[in-house]
């Protein structure tokens, strides 16, 4: 029934970056890209469910969400958005350098990305700290200083801050994971590992992930920080 292909030598030894289950680099690269996109689809659904919850509650309690959101610091949000958009650019550049096999460029760009990510987390830290200080973290002590609620009904404001901490927290977790992965990638580049230098795909995959993190923030920012007055 099935004939045997005669010319298929096993990939070993031909290409250091080629895994045994693949026939050639093209197949391997395609597989990784498709795999990453499939994973990103799951991430879209993952955050999507949270956005759905947010949409529902915000439509139910428009005024309270608006009043509660005034407690957020728009400047900090803006800065963070700038930082993330810029880091998306540097990651895209690092992919470009990886394609051109320019090790120095890749390392520089990934380094800047790391700095951006760190800056993002530091700003987040100060934001969170402020909210905690103002007793805006949901739970028993919530709203014990009503002046920070800006007149929102405490219960509904609590819903808002529950979503705020839940969604930005999960997003922040993704940023941290991104930092770890980028750090790992940088180490690989630093050590001239053929896994990354011979093949730009690992860099590309990390880039895709990082852009997704950016994408989530693009929606989080206007939804959390910039509500129009109802």
């Amino acid at each position: 029934m099935a004939a045997i292909a005669s010319d298929h030598g096993h990939g070993h030894g031909h290409d250091e970056a080629l895994h045994h289950q693949f026939e050639n680099m093209e197949q391997q690269n395609d597989s990784y890209i498709v795999g990453m996109w499939t994973f990103l689809v799951t991430e879209v659904m993952f955050f999507g469910a949270l956005f759905l919850i947010y949409t529902l509650y915000r439509s139910m309690y428009q005024m309270d969400f608006f009043l509660a959101h005034e407690a957020l610091n728009v400047q900090m949000g803006m800065i963070n958005t700038f930082v993330l958009l810029f880091s998306s650019f540097t990651v895209a550049m690092s992919v470009r350098y990886a394609q051109l096999q320019k090790r120095g460029g890749v390392l520089a760009m990934l380094g800047i990305t790391q700095v951006c990510a760190l800056a993002f987390m530091v700003v987040k830290y100060f934001e969170y700290q402020e909210k905690f200080g103002h007793h805006l973290y949901p739970g028993p002590g919530f709203g014990s200083h009503p002046e920070y609620l800006h007149g929102a009904t405490p219960n509904f404001a609590q819903l808002y801050f529950g979503l705020y901490f839940g969604m930005t927290g999960l997003h922040g977790l993704h940023v941290v994971i991104g930092m770890i992965v980028i750090g790992y990638l940088m180490a690989k580049w630093w050590r001239n590992s053929p896994m990354v230098t011979k093949d730009y795909i690992p860099t590309e995959l990390v880039g895709l992930y990082w852009h997704f993190v950016d994408l989530v923030w693009i929606f989080l920012f206007p939804l959390m920080y910039l509500m129009p007055k109802p």
Partner: peptide, 20 residues
């Protein structure tokens, strides 16, 4: 979200606060 609600007090579905 339930884990959040139980561990971190994030009220995502809690009806007493107006959640659904």
């Amino acid at each position: 979200c339930i884990i959040f609600e139980r561990v971190f007090h994030l009220p995502i579905f809690s009806a007493e606060l107006g959640g659904d």
